[in-house]
Design a protein around this nucleic acid. Structure first.
Lengths: 193, 193
DNA sequence: CGGTGATGTAAGCAAGCGCTTACCATCGGA
DNA sequence: TCCGATGGTAAGCGCTTGCTTACATCACCG
């Protein structure tokens, strides 16, 4: 009769991960209960603990799966454009990394870890595009802009930013970023790789 | 016997508001319990409910008190600099508006309301500084940058941004913002393959 | 078959939560 | 002096939380 018998462990795990990802993004870590997750996944609550051990471990698994293929390794002078494009087009692939991070800042270490892992690659790549003595600071400022844009678009959904055409947004932002990164005081000329 | 008798209702209310403001900023709404708040305020838990009715009403009171004197009314071409300065110097006056907003996004309406009230003034003032047809979008991008800088500094405490000299940061950011706001409509070709 | 391990489930436990209740202690005015 | 109003407190209620336990149900293999 009931055909939801024996879906298989990997399928159940995957369903739990998907449900958890969506709910964490919607409500944040604290306002999401394990009963909610299991319910949306169509899986008994006890299985969540059998497969992941704890709610926090589930969260870690969600984060780990989300931050897997984040930015392969691309020419540094296009990094910013690629990142920005990825964020602006985010509706296409339901990643929700930023929303999860911001909505679930309860466990500080976790959020910090996400930020570091997500940010360090960006920073390194961006800092390589300029020869400033304060290249790291300027790269962080660029990251800050990305984070802010992502936040206003995906979390608060503020118009007109949220609905703006991504090409248009990039055409606005890129020249300003170029000003920030290229604005030179005195650069000793050594070529970068 | 015990000498902490009769502190007075307004003093107790103020102590509760201060403790709540700090704890909400530190841990977020959900991870802050009314017992924590009362404990830090040195006030009996039941008084919290006598004076404010509920935990959520306390939160609303904190927000209301925080967002009171936000940006009087200043020459529009200096708005961005003033806002940025205010954020960068925030350690001096324990406001925590942004941290509270971001840490306590559970109640969506509240966070949204904060954002709107906090943002609309900025947006209006900034949009007045440029004659672009998409002035609003560009103003929102500036707000996004502010939000991102504030987030990275105050919430995640990311270095080198968090520890950077505010004059230095402003010297980096302002020219780029000027590029964003003054840049005329024809767009320089972007290096893309 | 029979048993062994993986999958799924109902029921409930201990703890923490927001909030309430019933009760002191103090003071100002009559 | 008595009394009501006000400030303060201990105890606990009802509920939800994350997590556990004991028990069915299947698949597979000797």
């Amino acid at each position: 009769m009931t055909e939801q018998r024996k879906r298989g462990s990997t399928a159940s795990k995957e369903a739990l991960l998907d449900a958890a990802r969506d709910l964490f993004a919607e409500r944040g870590y604290d306002r999401t209960t394990v009963r909610d997750i299991a319910g949306r996944a169509g899986v008994n609550q006890a299985l969540l603990f059998r497969y992941f051990g704890s709610k926090e471990a589930l969260f870690a698994a969600v984060v780990a799966r989300s931050g897997r293929d984040r930015l392969a390794g691309s020419p540094p002078d296009q990094v910013f454009a690629r990142i920005l494009r990825g964020i602006l087009d985010k509706e296409h692939h339901g990643d929700h990394a930023m929303r999860i991070m911001l909505r679930s800042t309860g466990e500080d270490a976790v959020a910090r870890e996400i930020h570091d892992r997500l940010g360090q690659d960006y920073i390194r790549a961006l800092a390589g595009t300029t020869g400033h003595p304060d290249a790291a600071l300027r790269a962080h400022l660029v990251l800050a802009w990305i984070v802010g844009i992502d936040l206003l678009r995906s979390v608060t959904g503020a118009e007109p930013l949220a609905g703006a055409d991504s090409d248009h947004v990039m055409a606005c932002v890129l020249p300003a970023v170029r000003t920030l990164l290229e604005q030179v005081q005195d650069i000793p000329s050594h070529s970068d790789t």
